[in-house]
Design a protein around this nucleic acid. Structure first.
Lengths: 236, 236
DNA sequence: TATATTACTGACCGCCCAGTCATTTACTCG
DNA sequence: CGAGTAAATGACTGGGCGGTCAGTAATATA
């Protein structure tokens, strides 16, 4: 981690670089082991400093955690929002572009571990959970929803509830991240992300195409499958 | 939790009921706070016993965790497998039936917290992770994949890679559970599960329908959206 | 080179909690 | 009812880890 330990000095002053290095090390370990199971000594060691140094830059473990999340997500959403604003072309192309960019700049990056971390810990740190929800999740939701609504308005997509459709778009993306950061290691033939995302987009483009019946519960022709809405079934 | 504390006794002997009650309490707390953040004293208290009693039935915290997972999932998969075997009718109907049953007997139950727990902890307990993968995940995958393949063979679904399509089916289901057990609490308008699942099935039935181009990267007509395969793009 | 400054260290502290066990209480059986 | 057994208790312990701080080593200044 230390760039070049000049000569044979035991350590060098690197006031500027420390926080970023510590946060990077912390993110790695938090994602791998979870917040509680990660020792501050380990984080410090991975960043090439002692635990005491960590406390020069972060006042507590929780503050370090917050900083990791904050600094990790700041660039993310903004980038997505700029992408949507600047786009000219079909809504589906935009959707593809978003997925691609997301994968390359987040998913396939160590930042891709953050969602797993947040899902695991948001109940233990409601303040951070709420922050993450406000600053990342809800903005991400709005972003995708806007694309869907634009596509529906132009007639490119059929009319469906954008809020729920948005979740159908995001679920496989988030799921991919969670998978890679948890069970991927025991899978015989690991998931190939590019193929996975292609498949997802392919199913979406067909599922969203207009002219095949609107909304749930309706079907255009007398097909074999008749949709039984869960809403009408008795609850447990 | 104790059924009836007879008379004014300080406690009663309930050798048979203790393990189940302890596991139930443990599942609640593990799901809510995570494995590490859950205290054995709390589990015992919720089950109405002292910590010492817990150790009469489980030799360690980790053994308790294993037992919780094991006992929680034994009934689950088998039920699904019986469902598939006994089904007569279209593949999509079967898919619906699976989703409904899953939701009612697992998703909308405290068992629905197990996936979150496993995703969070499987890296810290590789042995349990592997067990869960073998006994639940891979069997669940095979189950859904079999339905897809049957549907493709009969021409009800278009031909696509069943392994990846299976993941597209499961992702929103698992995602629903994770959501409910983590961020749901900070959502202004919470997700309505029945509507969510209906929407999912609706998108699927359209996305899987044949006669709209096969596989990713192909489109039948000159539509606005042209699919750019991620496979062909440069990697990060 | 001498002095002042400060980034950094690592031994140390105290709390917390998994795990133990001697004792107490409930039940069983004759 | 009384003796024997098994279930349950809760005070205790030991280790681990978050957090501290007096001291040390690197750098700045002159």
């Amino acid at each position: 981690m230390n760039s070049q330990p000049k000569h044979d000095r035991r350590w060098t002053r690197r006031k500027e670089a420390r926080p970023a290095e510590l946060m990077s090390a912390a993110l790695d370990l938090f994602v791998e082991r979870g917040y509680a199971a990660t020792r501050l000594d380990e984080i410090a060691a991975r960043a090439g400093v002692s635990k005491g140094t960590l406390y020069l830059y972060f006042s507590s473990k929780e503050e370090l955690f917050k900083a990791v999340i904050r600094s990790g997500i700041v660039p993310l959403i903004e980038r997505g929002e700029r992408l949507v604003d600047g786009h000219r072309g079909s809504s589906f192309e935009l959707l593809q572009e978003i997925v691609h960019t997301w994968w390359e700049s987040i998913g396939d990056t160590k930042l891709g571990g953050i969602p797993k971390l947040m899902f695991s810990e948001c109940r233990n740190f409601p303040e951070i959970g709420r922050f993450y929800y406000e600053e990342v999740i809800s903005r991400g939701h709005q972003l995708v929803q806007a694309v869907l609504e634009k596509g529906m308005k132009s007639g490119e997509f059929r009319r469906i509830d954008a809020n729920y459709a948005m979740r159908m778009i995001l679920a496989p993306l988030v799921y991919l991240l969670l998978w890679r950061h948890s069970f991927d290691f025991c899978d015989g033939k690991p998931v190939h992300p590019e193929k996975y995302l292609d498949q997802h987009l392919d199913l979406l483009v067909h599922g969203l195409k207009p002219g095949a019946g609107q909304g749930s519960g309706e079907k255009k022709r007398g097909e074999t499958a008749k949709i039984i809405s869960m809403e009408k079934r008795g609850r447990r």
